[in-house]
Design a protein around this nucleic acid. Sequence first.
DNA 1: ACGGCCTATTGACTCCGGGCCAATAGCCGT
DNA 2: ACGGCTATTGGCCCGGAGTCAATAGGCCGT
Lengths: 206, 206
Amino acid sequence: MGVERQDRRRRMEPDARRAEILGVARRQFGARSYSTVSLSDIAAEAGVARALVSHYFGSKRQLYLEVVRQMMVVPASVSERLPPTTAEERVSICVDRWLEVVERNREMWLSAIGLEALGNDPEIDRIMLEADEIATDRVLEAAMMADITEGREKLRAMIRAHSSMLKAASREWLVRGTLGRSDLHVMLTRTVLHLVHTVFPALRDD
Amino acid sequence: MGVERQDRRRRMEPDARRAEILGVARRQFGARSYSTVSLSDIAAEAGVARALVSHYFGSKRQLYLEVVRQMMVVPASVSERLPPTTAEERVSICVDRWLEVVERNREMWLSAIGLEALGNDPEIDRIMLEADEIATDRVLEAAMMADITEGREKLRAMIRAHSSMLKAASREWLVRGTLGRSDLHVMLTRTVLHLVHTVFPALRDD
DNA sequence: ACGGCCTATTGACTCCGGGCCAATAGCCGT
DNA sequence: ACGGCTATTGGCCCGGAGTCAATAGGCCGT
């Protein structure tokens, strides 16, 4: 019964092993919650001793942080090479590409926003914050508002808030099915433009 | 040195003891993250044996669920006794009351939205969902859209998504100070109305 | 081919937190 | 005062995380 393949220890390059373990961790943390996933689980699926996971990542939390970091990366393709037309069209294209990406990586993306938690963790917050900043820049660029200086911070804050709605709406689409893709497209495009063109100018500047 | 007060065990009514422990738990889970708060910590601050906490709440997770449940309650006062004027004014009043509540219970509210996670927990999801449903009803009532039947689910889904933006924007206000209270008022009022009056009718119904 | 070395990998140990149970001791009625 | 009901406790076991010396995979020089 030749099932005893791979039971002997195989020596790998640290980078490769590290990547392999990280991949398993991403899958596990995506599927179950932080506290229910044990290092033993991850080690087992990776076909490796538990101590090795600790060796490469230090602690469970650090491993988790790596996973979150990797998942938060929004592909740059979403806001690349936008045609120089109206802000409306550019945002529309942007949203469309975003929906495309999300639909394609459905599982992975759901995990990503699903695990943005573990409580009030300052480290997690920092990672999320950085991801949000990047995303915000891209949206402003698409809406051709990147060079606004007056009240810039308020504008950015509103975009960040909007991205929360974006996440929630995407979940409504993918998980609950209450909104369709075209609904999302209309809703997200219009609300961004509404924020930027109508709400933002209406804020009294103090 | 008479520091030995209260070191003897005091017998209390189950309800009172339960409430006392729950209060401590609320504070602790609000201040630190789920996994870093131990039952020992809670028991210690409550001046009680660890086993008693387990006795009253069964498991750590169940205690946590209680805390979340209690924190998610949005005071009904926000949408009570709205004058029968335009939707705009009613929503405006609603938002204003909301901001009032949040400002008053700043710490508590921040804790509440801070802990809405722990990963992919179906129980937590259910609790959040129920809270969202109630909040959504109130918003629709305020906007005088409560009797819409055509596309009702889409409308509700949008409102739920909007409430995510509301939370994020409130955090921008309370934590980062990037938006002021009046900014929030303008932004939240306008976006709700925009969703309900402009975006919603624009969705193609399929 | 083969011995030796570097280091990836491991097993075992300790500590800590959660769940559980029988024993203990407040408090109330009589 | 005392007996009983039950709130409360200490102690047990289990499983997971962090740590370290020991082990062995595989490459290199000969």
